[in-house]
Design a protein around this nucleic acid. Structure first.
Lengths: 207, 207
DNA sequence: TAGATTGTTAATCGATTAACAATC
DNA sequence: TAGATTGTTAATCGATTAACAATC
């Protein structure tokens, strides 16, 4: 359910910018390729009540989603691994809309230190523990090669990091109190591959 | 289940490179933070049978996963949207391990045309339909801004594209025969945000 | 009042987990 | 034979879907 909230949020923000004030579950379902029942269930889950015949107040929906996701406040985070993907993530301005601000990057490559990526500094990874404590950073976006991911994760845990958004292609073994969200690209590709193969099987192409 | 296959595949490849020949469900579970029962169920689902006391043959497991995912053959794809994220995806060499090869990029920005990204050419988006047909390309990695995503998707559908790996922050409305896999970053961040908030609630920090 | 829309309760479905039998 | 490990059947759980009552 949580995974659908960003979709709702995006749609509701768009509707608000069009000066709309209310939506029905049927309208939302149509726009997001869901069913009205599912929309109502999700709305119920975030604690918003609507009014029969009128629908739900956009204002209520927006406030509730942002509150559930904690995106009503900005979280500062470090990025670790200033390679291709890391740089792209630094440059992605969409994070601001989701309450996330990457304030600095870290890498083990001394050649990258001192550089700035979109205005944010790059430090040596060994400086992270000290800076994390001084700046009260608890979240890291991890974009290092899979082979070193576990070692870096150990360092992050040791530095008191509590949430890791893991883009590295590796399973991380961390203590219970640390939250890891895997964003492995291979996963999405796997799902796409299988679904596409199924589609072809049921609807063979001409060639 | 399919979402776990890439994790298994990675582990099994690693074990094979260590000259191992068999694994038990308990060992796999330990390494991937799963349960042995779940591993056995997944293995059953991909059609591999093991031997009591000995475990499963790595060779069988690798072949079965690659076959299910269709990663035993390479699929050629186009990338659309040569911005930050698009470039990072072009540069990601991990795709090769997953049977995906991005052979060209497309953008509407004429200034980018003629450029090469990691050895692959950038073309004007309007050339895509013709090239897709001539090169028999059916899959696109979509990394355009959300605001234009639907228009681009319409063009892709018109061009006969059948699978879209969608990195754009937007819901795409496409015909039934087109498979879309959303890879919206906001989704993962939403899940992480909620899980982290829950963790903090049950285990408050000192400050 | 009538009708559209939400809210609630029950049914269904798939995935996960558990218990235990089969087998090497 | 004994013991470790797979395979199978049943139970549980959560999410989704359906049916219908409540309400503006």
């Amino acid at each position: 359910m949580v995974r659908r909230l960003p979709n709702y949020l995006r749609l509701f923000r768009e509707l608000r910018s069009e000066r709309r004030e209310r939506v029905s579950s049927a309208f939302v379902a149509e726009r997001l390729s869901l069913t009205a029942i599912q929309v109502r269930k999700d709305v119920e889950a975030i604690g918003v009540v609507g009014r029969p015949r009128l629908g739900y107040e956009l204002k209520d929906l927006l406030a509730a989603i942002e509150e559930v996701l904690g995106w009503d406040n900005t979280t500062d985070a470090f990025l670790v691994g200033a390679g291709n993907l890391g740089r792209a993530l630094m440059g992605y301005d969409g994070f601001a809309r989701h309450g996330l601000s990457i304030v600095a990057a870290f890498d083990t490559d001394a050649a990258k230190v001192g550089e700035e990526i979109d205005g944010r500094p790059v430090f040596l990874l060994s400086k992270l523990p000290d800076l994390a404590r001084r700046m009260h950073i608890s979240m890291v976006v991890l974009a290092v090669p899979g082979a070193v991911a576990q070692d870096v994760a150990d360092l992050l845990v040791e530095a008191g990091i509590q949430a890791i958004w893991n883009f590295a292609p590796a399973h991380l073994d961390v203590p219970d109190h640390v939250v890891v969200q895997d964003e492995d690209l291979a996963r999405g590709l796997a799902v796409l591959s299988v679904r596409w193969a199924e589609a072809r099987r049921s609807r063979p192409t001409s060639e």
